[in-house]
Design a protein around this nucleic acid. Structure first.
Length: 579
RNA sequence: GACUCAGUAGCUCAGCAGGUAGAGCACAUCCCUUUUAAGGAUGGGGUCCUGGGUUCGAAUCCCAGCUGGGUCACCA
């Protein structure tokens, strides 16, 4: 195996690995390691009077090493945080053989190695709670150097910051940037809190298909795949809605699902092709009930995370304290544009859009036009949680018509920080009305709207069996996590955001014997390799031997190799293979 | 998709009227023998993103591409 493609530090670590094996230390031991303490618990609970933690065993990654002769300090980082280790040569190695300290600990261990230690807790002269190490075990040798991030008095030095690297190598990001871990701990807490509330109410957590023959429940462009055995196209779901409503038809009073949806659309700082959504459907409720439920849900999530309903987000403080103001869509548009769009037809709406300088396209129907006005002129204004209610029927093909106005639907979206956070309605359960709405979608599709919904005949059949009056609601979990953790980019709340595939430089096989058989001396083979002549075939592509001669002599000089230069004739003979 | 900024050592970055690639940390060797981001000394380490072009000479200037960030557009 050639190690030429490795960096110096990687080579050194591999050499250390081999040396450890020679000395009889298994760099990758199989046995369980009996951890009985965490760094954070020790730091929080140690008392110098009690001398507790007298026999601890902990494991983690060594993040720093300060060797001072026969006594050294190191930092151990486990899942809870960091703690200092004190390692003394004669205590680690009570007998004559000091190899474990002198060679293994001081030389063969590196930053990033995973070790286990046993010992007792004490406080150093500098006043730092530390573990006095009596036993040290290597649990995993790390072969790549870790970015070394240092921190003092809240100032971070040499941070690992390159965003691309952080997303592509999230494992490294998590090791060296501990605050990143918090975001994901909070993300889990958000989901757990919501689940707790749903379960308290007796709603059932369910799972519905991700692979769907018809991608329904939303207006979006799907990913398409193919099932070989059935020989049919299948779509990755864009929403859970229709399947969950079929379960309400089936007799459940409340069902919810945390699931991934997939949309084949643009990617930016607020959109990832796959994202997590919570959808919940509750029978015998309406959208008014759902508004109350939603505001209580969010209030409780904020309290669980922050102990307060007030959450910092960018330059704002968002207060999730219920209740939230309710503004109808028409009011919102009237307030922010001056136009009352109630009762306006498509042509009139187009003129309003033109006046307001809103970009529109011919295939946009009435619903899309109104959505466009709202999105452009109103949405950004709703920073504090606000329910926008009563959407035009054209925008909401799965929503029940408003009880007091047939042109509107019983729908709300919750706006926070100028963005949609939740979307809910009194679900349409009139199967004949639903059929007409689907047919209207079909007309939009024929007009060129690529996001118009497909007709789902099984869903219609289910509705024909009868669905109780139901309210449903969806929340984007990624977006909620962004809002609750003060991150403005979705990539910061996903462990592995979608990225373009990394192009790997391919490792080139190198066969020195190809060159020696041409009569090329060993010292020049290395030079040729460095210059990019990685095979005899590449060497044959050289048209002028004089050029190659100059190249290798130049390399010799530049790198001060001190080799006696070959004559041009010798180089010529290499190329002709006559050497 | 458009515009814009960036890509140099393991990490963070400097270098750019075109003239031998630099610093700090990390790494190695030695000294020190209880340190607090950093004890001291010495040293090794680079396809300056890739490919073309201009030039005697390109990390630097020009063109194209790749990757990423930002803004905008598109998008429940």
């Amino acid at each position: 195996m050639t190690t030429l493609s490795l960096s110096e530090q990687e080579t050194i670590r591999r050499n250390s690995l081999n040396r450890l094996r020679e000395l009889g230390y298994d760099p990758y031991p199989a046995a369980e390691y009996p951890v009985n303490a965490l760094a954070a618990a020790i730091k929080a609970g140690y008392s110098d009077e009690l001398k507790n933690f007298g026999d601890v065993c902990l494991a983690g990654r060594m993040m720093n090493q300060r060797i001072m002769g026969k006594a050294s300090f190191a930092e151990l980082q486990d899942s809870s945080g960091r703690i200092q280790l004190y390692v003394n040569r004669d205590e680690l190695c009570p007998g004559e053989d000091k190899t474990l300290y002198n060679e293994v600990f001081k030389k063969l261990l590196d930053i990033g190695d995973i070790i286990g230690v046993k010992g007792y807790v004490f406080i150093t002269q500098m006043g730092e709670i530390s573990v006095h190490v009596k036993e040290l075990t290597l649990l995993n040798k790390s072969l790549r150097p870790l970015p070394v991030v240092k921190e003092k008095d809240g100032v971070t030095y040499d941070a690992f910051t390159v965003v691309e690297q952080r997303y592509r190598m999230r494992y490294v990001d998590l090791i060296v940037n501990p605050q990143i871990r918090d975001v994901f701990v909070k993300r889990a807490l958000i989901i757990n809190t919501m689940r707790e509330i749903f379960n308290e109410n007796g709603y059932l957590e369910v799972e519905t298909p991700i692979l769907q023959p018809i991608p329904g429940g939303a207006a979006a462009r799907p990913f398409i795949t193919h099932h070989n055995a059935l020989d049919i196209p299948l779509y990755l779901r864009i929403a859970n809605e229709l399947y969950l409503k079929k379960l309400i038809v089936g007799g459940f009073d409340g069902v919810y699902e945390f699931g991934k949806d997939f949309r084949n659309e643009g990617m930016d700082r607020t959109h990832n092709p796959e994202f997590t959504v919570l959808e919940i459907y509750v029978a015998y409720k309406d959208y008014l009930w759902m508004m109350k439920f939603t505001e209580q849900l969010l209030e409780r999530v904020a309290l669980a995370l922050h102990g307060t309903t007030r959450v910092t987000l960018g330059d704002h403080i968002i207060d999730f304290k219920a209740p939230y103001p309710r503004v109808t869509m028409y009011e919102a548009i009237k307030n922010h544009t001056g136009y009352d769009i109630a009762g306006k037809n498509e042509e009139e709406l187009r003129r309003i859009c033109d006046t307001l300088n809103i970009a529109i396209t011919p295939e946009m129907g009435k619903g899309k036009l109104i959505d466009q006005i709202f999105g452009e002129k109103c949405e950004p204004h709703f920073i504090q949680p606000t329910f926008i209610i009563d959407y035009p029927v054209e925008m909401s093909p799965l929503t029940k018509k408003h009880r007091s106005n047939p042109n509107l639907t019983e729908r709300f979206e919750l706006m926070v920080f100028g963005k949609e956070l939740a979307n809910a309605y009194s679900e349409l359960n009139d199967p004949l009305d639903q059929r007409e709405r689907f047919e209207e979608q079909l007309r939009l599709s024929e007009k060129g709207d690529q996001e118009a919904m497909y007709i789902d005949h099984d869903f219609l059949r289910a509705l024909e069996h009868g669905m109780p009056p139901t309210s449903g609601m969806g929340i984007g979990i990624d977006r909620l996590t962004m809002f609750m953790t003060n991150n403005l980019s979705i990539q910061d709340v996903l462990f592995f955001p979608q990225m373009k595939p990394e192009t790997r430089k391919q490792e080139i096989a190198f066969h020195p014997e190809e060159f020696s058989s041409l009569g090329i001396p060993g010292e020049w083979i290395d030079v040729l390799k460095k210059l990019g002549y990685t095979s005899a075939a590449k060497l044959r592509e050289v048209d002028k031997y004089t050029r190659l001669h100059q190249e290798i002599c130049g390399y010799n000089k530049k790198n001060k190799l001190g080799l006696p230069n070959p004559s041009p004739e010798e180089v010529k003979s290499w190329l002709s293979g006559q050497g």
